[in-house]
Amino acid sequence: MLFGYALIAGVLFGLFYAFMSTGLNLLFGVLRLVNLAHGDIVVFGAYVAYSLSSMAGLNPLLAIPITIVPALAFGVLLYYGTVPRLNRSQDTEMASLILFFGVSQVLEAVATFAYGNNQASLSPTTFGGPINILGEHVPATWVVCGLLSIPALVVLFVYLYRSRLGMATRAVMASREEAAAAGINTRRVAALAFGIGVAFAAASGALTIFMLGGVNPSTGSELVLTAFTVVVIGSLGNPIGTVVGGLLYGLVFTFTKTYSPSWADIVPYLLMLVVLLVRPTGILGRRVRSA
């Protein structure tokens, strides 16, 4: 039955999209800037998984623990190397968009030098044959990747809602000035949030290579749009909104893919425009629309 298949696949893809997009939202929430290099960092994670599997013969999912620490460090360094400079600009927002666009293109060029322009993909039967869920045969890779996104999201929520540092992070999200006035080292919190956002992006790369059926250097610019669509649907700066946005995006994507394949690539953008038109703040948004 097509409907049940699309529904199950939609939820699995939705969980994955939520995981893949959440780093972008964390960065936006804390720093009010859009990391246009987000998608390219995801692609780097995907290439790590690809290399581990195709060159070293290891389990590609090992890429998740392997990339987290370097990605975190890269994110923190990138923060200290660029953001204090950007804050001196007359128009921080504009400068940051251009800067991260540049970073994105640099990463894309590096990926092209290292891996070429061809699609890098791993066997869709890496985790075994299709799994029977409620009578529908769903590829094992989708099930594994969809379910693995759940603990990743849980980790983020424990950090944000159950730890002192997470509380400080949310305080900075709510108001940077008031958080600083309350004695929070906003710069350190922001640097860490930046690192965590980048680490989440890189970690989700290992799943991306399976969910998208492969990656190439230019996949990154498509992914950042997908991630942003998910985040905007859910509402910018709201972590729970990203999960809602991810699920909605996943369902819309798989249903159009099932019933009208040629429209599957454009419907997500239409969805974003419709959400922006009806609710400029996103589904769970309370903030003003000038972000």
Binding site: F28, L33, V34, L97, L276, L277, P280, R289, S290, A291
Partner: peptide, 8 residues
């Protein structure tokens, strides 16, 4: 589109 501002 022009209902939005800045990054959005």
């Amino acid at each position: 589109l022009l209902r939005l501002r800045g990054n959005a």
